[in-house]
Nucleic acid binder design. Structure first.
Lengths: 149, 149
DNA sequence: ATGAGTGCAAAGGCTTTGCATTAGG
DNA sequence: CCTAATGCAAAGCCTTTGCACTCAT
């Protein structure tokens, strides 16, 4: 997905929900797009310029509300945010248990079939399933190298 | 798993790590066992008697450190804890996006095979994968009923 | 012009920590 | 006995909110 298309999508969705697509919000979306993975607010702030924390949090809250972003709870104390699957396409996550970094993963068709099948089984329990998350947990190459020293 | 076996396992693991299996810790384990799902600290405190917050948090931290419990990040502001898979057996989670409740799910063999296969693909990237999480997200029967009113 | 959005600073709320006391081995 | 563990209260820290100002429409 090109970044222009992402901005258009964001502008449209926000407009429809009665919000403006301001410079600050555009900057946040730009940073989320550029990260390509779930990022914490501090990380996001260091990637953009001239966006105060409070605005970042407020913008992220709105982006999540209108479905443009999602919150990804990691292993450390920070919430992480990334563009929603409607923008990025469906994917999974790879968590590093040591440093907390989260990497996006492309799903395979075979895997998705198995996951959907699992979802089906649960609807019988009265749940209405809206989606799934599949995370792999491990140690990233960087942390592995540090540990072996 | 019987609760006695759980206590024995907890006592053993804590001993090995140089910790004592005190009454308070036993109570926390008992509550986690009784819950059978990830619970918040407030929920845990209401289930046991005579355990102050600080002790609960400290005990949970230790239980996580020695691998007897895990933290499950939900959709609300509370961390949730449950006994680790080494105690409960491997399972997955069903998140209610509305009320934040998390329910345990039995995995199917077919699903596990597909998930393991996905893990294998990632090791090629230099990651060492230690486990996976598969969560279904949706709305629980209770919240569905409330919404339809 | 006029309400949404912003920015600073302060408050909130979950979680952690200091320190004196208690209890386990 | 002697160290680990506890309990109360206070502090930390990420996140949210109040309020006055600014910008977009």
């Amino acid at each position: 997905m090109r970044v222009e298309a992402t901005h258009e999508q964001a502008a449209q969705r926000l407009q429809d929900a009665g919000f403006r697509y301001t410079t600050a919000r555009r900057n946040v979306v730009q940073a989320l797009f550029g990260a390509g993975r779930p990022v914490t607010v501090p990380q996001l702030l260091s990637a953009v310029d001239g966006v105060p924390q409070s605005s970042a949090y407020r913008t992220l809250t709105i982006l999540v509300d209108v479905g443009l972003a999602v919150k990804v709870s990691g292993s450390d104390d920070y919430d992480r945010f990334e563009l929603a699957e409607g923008v990025t396409g469906h994917h999974h996550h790879l968590f590093c248990a040591t440093c907390g970094t989260v990497t996006d993963l492309e799903p395979s068709t075979r895997l998705e079939l198995a996951l959907d099948e699992a979802a089906l089984a649960v609807t019988a329990m009265g749940y209405s399933v809206s989606g799934h998350r599949f995370d792999l947990v491990g140690t990233c190459p960087t942390c592995t190298a540090l540990t072996e020293e």
